[in-house]
């Protein structure tokens, strides 16, 4: 039996909006650790890893490990029926082919339950080793989203280069070129507005902007985003989910032939 009660139900709504463009069907895995998901996009170029730790739920009961296959557009349809201030409870019985989403209004005067059919999904689980990155950039998530959106009106790919001068986002297209440099800036009023660059050595990598733009659907989950770069690894674009966990997007680079 599985029963997860999340007082801040809007978090689950935001998580679904963050990943449903990238991934169509996925297995949600429940264990004593928490509620997690790992899935690749259909082209196997990007991977999303989500973790919502059990401690972040008001009530978390998971008697045994359970993997629930869901169509993310259908989950999103269900969760969009929950109010932004609703408490969301996810329930499933062992061996059941359905999952129930229960929505309670904050003052308990409205209770709704939506039952959704589960599906069998053959998914590959990948081992993601811990790695040392050549450069780690932390910046406001809204700023990163703005840069990806702006550059995608000029070109299809972004070159992200980190040097001691800062982080540079560059693109080129038929109409011209664009370069946006963000310098390290720790002297801001609020820590979430800072741009912090930890560089072991300079790094420059090329990525498809289409995927980067898709990752920025997670912007409402966190004020900051962390971009970790190494020349021999996929980039990691991480949005921390306050007190609960994270959503991490991995994207394989484009390389010169």
């Amino acid at each position: 039996m599985l029963e997860l009660r999340l007082v801040q139900g809007s978090l689950l709504k935001k998580v679904l909006e963050a990943i449903r463009e990238l991934v169509t069907d996925a297995n949600f895995d429940c264990s004593a650790t928490g509620f997690s998901l790992q899935a690749m996009d259909s082209s196997h170029v990007a991977l999303v890893a989500l973790l919502l730790r059990s401690e972040g739920f008001e009530h978390y009961r998971c008697d045994r490990n359970l993997s629930m296959g869901m169509n993310l557009n259908n989950v999103s349809k269900m969760l969009r029926c929950a109010g932004n201030n609703d408490i969301i409870t996810v329930k499933a019985d062992d061996g059941s082919d359905t999952v129930t989403f229960m929505f309670e209004s904050p003052n308990q005067d409205k209770i709704a339950d939506f039952e959704m059919k589960l599906m069998d999904i053959d998914s590959e689980h990948l081992g993601i080793p811990d790695a040392e990155y050549q450069a780690i950039v932390r910046m406001p998530s809204s700023e990163f989203a703005r840069i990806c959106k702006d550059l995608s009106s000029i070109g299809d790919t972004v070159i992200i280069s980190v040097t001691k001068e800062g982080v540079k986002f560059s693109t080129a297209g038929d109409i011209g070129t664009a370069n946006i440099v963000c310098r390290q800036n720790k002297t801001v009023d609020k820590p979430e507005e800072a741009t912090i660059i930890e560089m072991q050595e300079p790094v420059s990598l090329t990525f498809a902007l289409r995927y980067m733009n898709s990752f920025t659907k997670a912007t409402p989950l966190s004020e900051t985003v962390t971009i970790s770069l190494s020349s021999d690894l996929p980039v990691v674009v991480e949005y921390k989910i306050a007190e609960m966990g994270y959503i991490r997007f991995y994207l394989a680079p484009k390389i010169e032939e």
């Binding site: 196997h44 170029v45 990948l126 991995y250 484009k254 032939e257």
Partner: peptide, 14 residues
């Protein structure tokens, strides 16, 4: 010209 790498080139199946 650039070629797009795949995730499976970096991470292995468990």
């Amino acid at each position: 010209t650039c070629i797009q790498r795949r995730i499976l080139g970096y991470f292995s199946r468990t």
